[in-house]
């Protein structure tokens, strides 16, 4: 993609299903059949018990902002045109956390707060790569 210069993920076998699902606009989270827990990021062995009986489960896509920041100074030139923008760590209802960007929201700390409810949206940044991102939802919608 000629006009997308930001760093992109390179999937590996353990993560390929996650990124393939994202392209289908689905959020998959690995679940360990041995200890019956979700975990994230995807990897060969469960970080809770080192079990390898791992199943991909579709996540609700709902969660809450564990924390966020508004970046005013790009750490990488490819993000220079985006500042200010919001990076965040979201805790999914399934109990796992992932890094993301918050979208459809003003990049204003006064408009953001920890624990605010969010839902996943899918940003097709290139024909090959879709990045799961999150947008605020009203508390009553939950």
């Amino acid at each position: 993609m000629a006009d997308y210069h930001k760093p992109l993920p390179t999937p590996i076998p353990d993560t390929q299903p996650f990124w393939d699902a994202a392209r289908r606009h689905e959020l998959l989270v690995p679940f360990c059949l041995d200890c019956q827990r979700h975990f994230f990021y995807p990897r060969r062995l469960c970080p809770h018990c080192l079990g390898e009986r791992i199943e991909w489960r579709k996540a609700s896509g709902r969660g809450r902002v564990y924390s966020f920041t508004v970046q005013y100074r790009a750490a990488h030139p490819a993000f220079a045109a985006d500042v200010p923008f919001v990076s965040a760590v979201v805790e999914l209802d399934e109990g796992v956390r992932l890094a993301t960007n918050l979208v459809d929201v003003e990049p204003d700390p006064a408009k953001l707060r920890c624990d605010m409810p969010v839902e996943v949206v899918f940003d097709d940044v290139t024909p090959e790569v879709t990045l799961p991102k999150f947008r605020p939802v009203a508390e009553v919608e939950r």
Binding site: P9, T10, D82, T100
Partner: peptide, 16 residues
């Protein structure tokens, strides 16, 4: 870009 951070943080501007 294949490391955990490269896949799950760097694309969101979290590299510093």
């Amino acid at each position: 870009s294949w490391l955990p951070q490269g896949q799950f943080e760097t694309p969101y501007g979290l590299m510093a």
